[in-house]
């Protein structure tokens, strides 16, 4: 029952590691210093990439949810859970790094920016999802309820984002200082760094996802073995 680690996964691990080192080097050595915000702007590259991975996981969880409800194959439950967990971790990274960036840029830790706020709501949906799963013993029902809840979340989050956006445009949030926009013109080097980071994090997502699905599969096998022995 113990599967040997596939060679492809080992290769992917190494590629991911190399890419991460390269991306980090690019962020610190290749990307120019931003003219107004200074060093803290470098957080931007990994902040955006982390949010991107969060969204990938969010989408993957919804796909797994649909697939589970259609097929009833428990492996899709494992995949959905893996996607939710990775998305949870990366949205957390995006939120905290965004907050750290907001402090010097807008002079406040929290800006109620629609994107950040929506990310927080997604985290709360994930928390609810985990609690829901924890409250159900029966694996099949746990999978079914989990799939339904991820899909409900997937449908409600865009609506939530739009509502917060509308709230923002109609009653603009006052952010300290006149330079409230905090936007900056991206030089070619900055763009290159950003796209390289996005690519790296996408590969990182695939790598982590693979590991997490293997972990989930192993957990399910152990669970089955335990049930078999208990009889």
């Amino acid at each position: 029952m113990k599967q040997a680690k596939p060679i492809a996964l080992t290769v992917l691990d190494l590629v991911t590691l190399a890419l991460m080192i390269a991306a980090t080097a690019m962020v610190f050595l290749y990307a120019p210093l931003e003219a107004v915000m200074g060093q803290v702007q470098r957080v931007f590259y990994f902040h955006v990439s982390a949010a991107w991975v969060g969204m990938l996981g969010f989408g993957a969880a919804a796909v797994a949810g649909i697939a589970y409800l259609r097929t009833g194959n428990m492996q899709w439950d494992v995949r959905g859970m893996a996607a939710v967990e990775i998305s949870l971790v990366f949205f957390f990274i995006a939120i905290v790094s965004g907050s750290i960036w907001a402090r010097p840029a807008w002079n406040t830790w929290w800006t109620w920016d629609p994107r950040l706020t929506t990310a927080v709501i997604v985290e709360l949906i994930y928390a609810a999802y985990l609690m829901l799963r924890q409250g159900i013993e029966e694996p099949e029902r746990r999978a079914r309820f989990g799939a339904v809840y991820t899909l409900l979340g997937f449908i409600s989050v865009p609506v939530t984002f739009i509502s917060i956006r509308l709230l923002d445009t109609i009653h603009p949030v006052v952010i300290g200082g006149s330079g409230g926009e905090g936007g900056f013109a991206m030089t070619p080097r900055m763009l290159q760094t950003m796209f390289f980071s996005l690519f790296t994090f996408s590969v990182l997502f695939v790598d982590l996802y693979w590991h997490r699905v293997r972990l989930g599969t192993l957990a399910r096998q152990v669970e089955q073995l335990r049930l078999k022995l208990a009889q």
Partner: peptide
């Protein structure tokens, strides 16, 4: 409430 509130934020706002 834990399941319901995060999904009904648009209702509250609107």
């Amino acid at each position: 409430p834990i399941l319901l509130f995060p999904l009904t934020i648009p209702v509250v706002i609107a």
